[in-house]
């Protein structure tokens, strides 16, 4: 303990059994209440890093800590919620009982967990659909149910793996705003994976730009704009410059690859 960071990773390497080097020397330190995005093209190891932090994947070498504990340990998980790219709801349960699941698995009494589930459903604007089954909801609604389920344990840390990747732009922007206001209200720390640099800039205080083959951190950018952010921010110069910067880093990396590739061919 004693570290000011909620999440810290040092010199993390991850090699899969098939030989793929998914992460090479990755370091990350996240402060309490911070909103950090991991951006980068497909295959750069964003999900792998997030899954390592959740304890769903182990590390080949290096070190990661969540609240000072090893990822995946009960203490680390107690304070954490993970939002998958897909809503991952139980289709045989109503929305209300899906949201209550984490508390149910922790042995909280039925009355208590259902009350709390109604509370978080109201937070994500789905109070009226508590009795519906997932099959009857739209993609965006399902995602909000998934977020409500993550919120129900009042997690200090939210790990989100491209939660809005499958949604249309309008819905995504609205959920972005909802997410920011929830984060403001709860003060949670968020690590948010996306391959969308606009989303990353809009949401985060810090952007970790990653490049693939092997997965590395290419650059870390600060977003020096306070919350609450509105659509005005999207029209601002800072926003444009940051998006451009992320793009530059990624394009520069891609161009390097192409030139190396053509030299090899020649």
């Amino acid at each position: 303990m004693g570290s000011p960071f909620v999440i810290s990773a040092k010199d993390v390497y991850k090699r899969f059994p098939d030989g793929t080097l998914a992460l090479e020397g990755v370091a990350l330190a996240v402060q309490p209440g911070e909103f950090v995005s991991l951006v980068g093209p497909s295959g750069c190891g964003k999900s792998t890093l997030l899954r390592i932090l959740a304890g769903l994947e182990d590390i080949t070498s290096g070190e990661a800590k969540v609240e000072g504990y090893a990822p995946g340990s009960p203490q680390a998980r107690q304070e954490m919620a993970f939002v998958f790219q897909e809503p991952t709801l139980l289709p045989w349960r109503s929305v209300l009982h899906n949201v209550a699941l984490p508390l149910e698995l922790r042995g909280v009494s039925s009355a208590q967990r259902l009350d709390r589930a109604r509370e978080v459903l109201d937070l994500v604007g789905l109070g009226a659909r508590a009795g519906a089954f997932p099959g009857a909801l739209s993609g965006g609604m399902k995602m909000r149910v998934s977020i409500a389920r993550a919120l129900i344990t009042r997690p200090k840390i939210m790990l989100m793996d491209e939660p809005f990747g499958a949604l249309d732009e309008m819905t995504r922007q609205r959920l972005n705003d909802e997410l920011l206001s929830l984060k403001q209200a709860t003060g949670s720390t968020v690590v948010f994976v996306t391959h969308n640099m606009f989303e990353a800039v809009y949401l985060s205080q810090r952007i970790v730009v990653m490049t693939p083959h092997p997965g590395r951190i290419a650059e870390v950018l600060e977003v020096p704009v306070a919350y609450p952010r509105t659509s005005e921010f999207r029209a601002s110069e800072t926003y444009g410059k940051l998006v451009y910067r992320v793009l530059n880093v990624l394009e520069g990396d891609a161009a390097k690859r192409v030139s190396v590739h053509s030299e090899v061919k020649a």
Binding site: A54, G55, L56, P74, R77, M80, A81, F82, F84, T88, L101, P102, L105, R106, T153
Partner: peptide, 8 residues
């Protein structure tokens, strides 16, 4: 994995 994460 969801169940695993919540310590089921």
């Amino acid at each position: 994995q969801l169940f695993q994460l919540y310590g089921a």
